[in-house]
Design a protein around this nucleic acid. Sequence first.
DNA 1: AACTTTATCGACATTGTGTCGATAAGTCAA
DNA 2: TTGACTTATCGACACAATGTCGATAAAGTT
Lengths: 205, 205
Amino acid sequence: MDPRVIRTRALLHNALIELVTERGYEPITIQDITDRATLNRATFYLHYRDKDDLLLNVFDELVDKIVPAPSMEFDPEHPETSTPNIERIFDHIAEHASFYHAMLGEAGAPFIAARVREYIEGLGMNWLQFLQPDEENAPVPLDIAVNYIGSAYLGVIFWWLDNGMPYSSRYMADRLICLTVQGLQRSLGLPPPEFSIGGPELSES
Amino acid sequence: MDPRVIRTRALLHNALIELVTERGYEPITIQDITDRATLNRATFYLHYRDKDDLLLNVFDELVDKIVPAPSMEFDPEHPETSTPNIERIFDHIAEHASFYHAMLGEAGAPFIAARVREYIEGLGMNWLQFLQPDEENAPVPLDIAVNYIGSAYLGVIFWWLDNGMPYSSRYMADRLICLTVQGLQRSLGLPPPEFSIGGPELSES
DNA sequence: AACTTTATCGACATTGTGTCGATAAGTCAA
DNA sequence: TTGACTTATCGACACAATGTCGATAAAGTT
């Protein structure tokens, strides 16, 4: 591939990342990006359809760096490796903290948040399927549980970024797993008996 | 107040709601809104600063209809009323399903999603504080737990809308409480012993 | 070194924004 | 009903951002 193309796209990638961390995604214009990249605005359109298209390319490039070996994503022999998997996500997010903080915030890009959530849901799905829940008799449908996990983790990740990453990746991953698997009852050390809200007698329809 | 002003603002409110359900929020222009409201574009600026300002007014108007008696928000004598509280949110969302579906989706407004989440977090906070968790010794900090709940519930609400509201409000509220309080272990009927992931031996820092 | 490809650039038409002053129309009180 | 007041309408303006040209220039290719 023409080295000029590689150089141009790299300039645009870097410009976007810089600007996003400075001002958020929404208010940035194509002009801003090409100014920062020291390129003409028209050049942008030779490489990307629009701002979102560029962002998707930047994001895909970033995501490709998360997992060196996709097959190691989940080791069925050791379900407790779900902690390391989530921990790895926290590490990745921390590596690009200002970028993700901007993208997941109010001036960010909702479709990137959705992608991150879907990625987490993928991990969660692998994990749940290995645990082989009794889908027929489970009080909660699997698809609800998967979305519940993905949304909660994504939200806590943003909380973590927004509060200056006050805990380690390991700590955060541990707490999320604890909340998810054991629930508030044990996660917050509550007295179990009379507070089994929504317990045995769940509604049907 | 001048009835003309009331009329004009009502026209703008209705126009926004209509357009948002048709095309989502992001691509709508002020011109679109005033065309639909059969008003001049300049008239818009006599009442609202910009599109977001109008949306916030529409949203606030909607939220005011959720809770008739804010003091009844949470009855400490009956912690299980957390289910009705969340159920009421599902009912409210269902009443304005197409609006919320558009606002919480990818062409929606992130700051509205944030507001809904904060509202839910408020309910969750009230609820948790009554249960008086042992904050000192709890394995998970309270602020993480609150954000975890708010994000998860918001995400599941959108999932519910996006899938055509396949379950009743009561059913959804029950399942969320079950997932939250008892965790996946009991919510999916998993064998408890060897899968106490992130259990007793949590990391410290 | 000459040829070819294609990236780059300046310019154009288009669309949306926010504001202004002048005119028309609705509202309320005397 | 009249007159004073408020609000809506309209046309126009400057500005900013978008997306697409054809001409130019600088890489890559033989």
